[in-house]
């Protein structure tokens, strides 16, 4: 097995072989999850804390379910109950949590890098469930698994990522992962929603959606936050839908068998046409949710194995 990482903080530190290992294991968990008795004891006796500084129903539920199916004791903490609101520093929060001896810490935070900072101060495995505009590694991994199962491979594909690239951690993680696996990545969106220095990312940048979709195997749509539609980044919702919303007409420029993805939750009629999102021949949006649980099970399983090995080595005095 090739998976050495202690934490899953982002896609950036992962080796392509580690990604493949994780996806292979996730495939087996997809099978497990489709059975009636979906239980494994990979994490039996271990404690998993889900710490969400930023609200999320879907991701938190996915992590919770993944942990429970692997037999972990799962606890959810949300920011409104946490002492961060009382002025405690991030590091204090980390130290306090650490004293409770969790084994897996799943963290979502509104600030880029906050999960990395937390990980430095704790003795358990940390999973990044999304930090600011930085990374969302499990989303990129579940997208990768979805693509691999739909297309039969995860290399030499043309993937178009469309929408609010600048503010999207999903876009960053996907961009890095797809690059590592040797795919051709195109970024499509209005220039105000493109990050600075995007030309140096090693991908193609388009502001015309039809040109960008030409010959794409995968069309990945991003959610556009409501607060960015008020004239600050784009003139209006309807102009955005007209130019960058995915509908059948624009999708016709992609390959005939191109799949449509969306990390959810969708704004129907803003970035994607509702009928298209529900078209089971093109849209794999429901599969993405299913793969999410399996990928998170695989990630936690692998990190738990490394954690046990690490602690074992420490106990044997090898450090």
């Amino acid at each position: 097995m090739t998976f050495r990482a202690r934490h899953l903080l982002g896609i950036e530190p992962l080796h392509p072989l580690e990604i493949t290992t994780l996806l292979d294991l996730a495939d087996t968990y997809v099978d497990l999850n489709r059975r009636t008795i979906k239980h494994s004891d990979a994490l039996a006796g271990m404690t998993q804390i889900n710490m969400f500084f930023e609200n999320s129903t879907r991701t938190q539920a996915s992590f919770e379910l993944a942990g429970k199916r692997l037999g972990a004791d799962v606890m959810n903490m949300s920011v409104s109950q946490s002492s961060v609101k009382k002025g405690e520093t991030l590091i204090d929060t980390a130290m306090t949590l650490n004293a409770m001896h969790p084994d897996l810490l799943v963290v979502r935070h509104q600030n880029s890098g906050a999960v990395n900072q937390l990980a430095e101060k704790v003795n358990c495995a940390v999973l990044n469930a999304g930090d600011g505009k930085h990374e969302h590694p499990t989303q990129a991994l579940l997208d990768a698994l979805t693509i691999r199962r739909a297309k039969g491979r995860l290399h030499r594909l043309t993937v178009a990522i469309c929408g609010d690239i600048a503010h999207s951690r999903v876009a960053r993680s996907n961009l890095i992962l797809l690059g590592k696996m040797e795919n051709r990545v195109r970024l499509i969106g209005p220039p105000t929603l493109m990050p600075a220095g995007v030309a140096e990312f090693g991908c193609e940048v388009y502001d015309d959606m039809k040109a960008g979709l030409e010959g794409a195997d995968v069309v990945m749509m991003l959610r556009l936050q409501k607060e960015r539609m008020d004239g600050a980044f784009i003139p209006s919702e309807r102009e955005y839908y007209h130019r960058y919303g995915l509908d059948a007409e624009k999708l016709a420029f992609a390959k005939e068998d191109a799949i449509v993805m969306h990390p959810g939750p969708m704004n129907r009629g803003v970035e994607i046409d509702g009928t298209l999102a529900d078209d089971i021949n093109r849209s794999v949006i429901q599969e993405q949710v299913e793969m999410g649980v399996a990928v998170r099970m695989a990630a936690m399983d692998l990190l738990a194995r490394n954690l046990k090995a690490h602690r074992g080595a420490e106990a044997a005095g090898e450090h």
């Binding site: 505009k133 600075a196 995007v198 140096e200």
Partner: peptide, 15 residues
């Protein structure tokens, strides 16, 4: 400072 580094780190940058 805006650029590749700030964008990859997801930090708000200034030109």
């Amino acid at each position: 400072t805006s650029g590749k580094f700030a964008s990859l780190r997801g930090l708000p940058g200034v030109s």
